[in-house]
Computed example of a mutant assay.
Amino acid sequence: MSDGVGGEVDLTDPVLASEAELAFEGALRPRSLSEFVGQTRVRGQLQLLLTAATIQQRTPDHILLAGPPGLGKTTLAMIVAHESGRPLRMSSGPAIQHAGDLAAILSSLVPGEVLFIDEIHRMARSAEEMLYLAMEDFRIDIMVGKGAGATSVPLDLSPFTLVGATTRAGLLPNPLRDRFGFTAHLEFYDDAELAQVLARAATLLGLDIDRDAIVEISGRCRGTPRIANRLLRRVRDYALVHTGRADLATVNAALDLYDVDALGLDRLDRAVMQIILTRFGGGPVGLNTLAVSVGEESETIEAVVEPFLVRIGLITRTPRGRVATSAAWRHFGLSHGDTALPIDDL
């Protein structure tokens, strides 16, 4: 098998196979805006922002990337650093739980460095308040001492660009959100864009795959490049074990094995839909009742399952609960009043 970067990899050697997989992961991420597929409007806006900063010989404005998981926020942060010719420092909101954690990061930045904070809405409130002054004036105030003798010592910072990523922009406090010079809202990909992502990944993976097989995968990955690449790798595994190449029949067999149906629904999605359709007659069903019925946390249903089901029109949210649409009844081949399908059959 080709390693996708100019050589053959001995898959019987676990070390070489693991290194090839890591090399593939690194090569999979585009290195420039011109290589990045999709998000046309955001790419144009970022290109203008970065080019203007280069002409003026200054650090680019702070950037907030908002959107669902898997759409390329981390990749865009890497591209911002690469196209600016600046080093990149990466952290995450959950890792910054005290103002001191943020102060240590900010004080060690070199001039012009790009600081990427993933899930920035999960940062501690004390760190958020410190970040206000750092973003605006490139300085922070350090408290020295305790009690009545405590004093505030200002510490100047090197100019930097903050790139924040969030899946829940509404949880960011307004003072923090307003300090970003540019906010990009990433949208789900259409099937044609996902086909481009898959074709590029297949080339890097050294996978011989038919065009109609790529089209089939693109229709099942929920508009998300991360899911598209994950499904492609499962198809690769199935082809490696069974058929040797990835045609349409191989794709269908592989995705059926991994419980991904024609709309991209996985087992949990179908379990939720089956509960609504057959146990509650199409709804309405409350969130907590639904979560208990499928044995999952209500947060998982609300944050992971429900947005996709609403987006593709299988359920609607009402004040009384979740209700299945006519499209849901058709997709599962049921009519109102059917209650005989066990979950394991879906």
Rank of each mutant, 00 (worst) to 15 (best):
V15E: 13
E25W: 10
L28I: 01
R31C: 05
R31Y: 05
V37C: 12
L46W: 01
L48E: 13
L48D: 11
A52R: 15
A53N: 13
D61N: 09
L64M: 13
L71R: 03
M78E: 14
I79A: 04
M90N: 03
S92H: 04
I96L: 08
H98W: 11
L102Q: 06
L109V: 01
V110R: 09
L115M: 09
F116A: 05
M123I: 00
S126I: 01
M130I: 05
A134Q: 04
D137W: 02
R139S: 09
G145E: 09
K146P: 00
P159H: 08
L162R: 00
T166P: 00
T167I: 07
A169S: 11
A169T: 09
P175R: 02
D178M: 10
D178C: 07
T183A: 12
T183N: 11
Y189K: 06
Q196T: 14
A202M: 10
A202I: 08
A202Y: 01
L207M: 14
L207K: 10
D208K: 15
I209R: 12
D210T: 15
I217G: 12
R230Q: 14
R230E: 15
R230L: 08
L232C: 09
R233D: 12
R233K: 15
V235A: 08
R236C: 06
Y238F: 15
V241I: 15
H242P: 00
G244E: 07
D247R: 14
L248H: 14
V251E: 00
A254L: 08
D256W: 06
G264P: 05
D266Q: 10
L268R: 10
R270P: 06
R270N: 09
M273V: 14
R279I: 05
G281I: 14
G286H: 05
N288E: 03
S298W: 04
S298Y: 03
I301F: 08
A303L: 11
V304G: 01
P319G: 06
W329H: 07
W329A: 03
R330D: 10
D344Q: 11
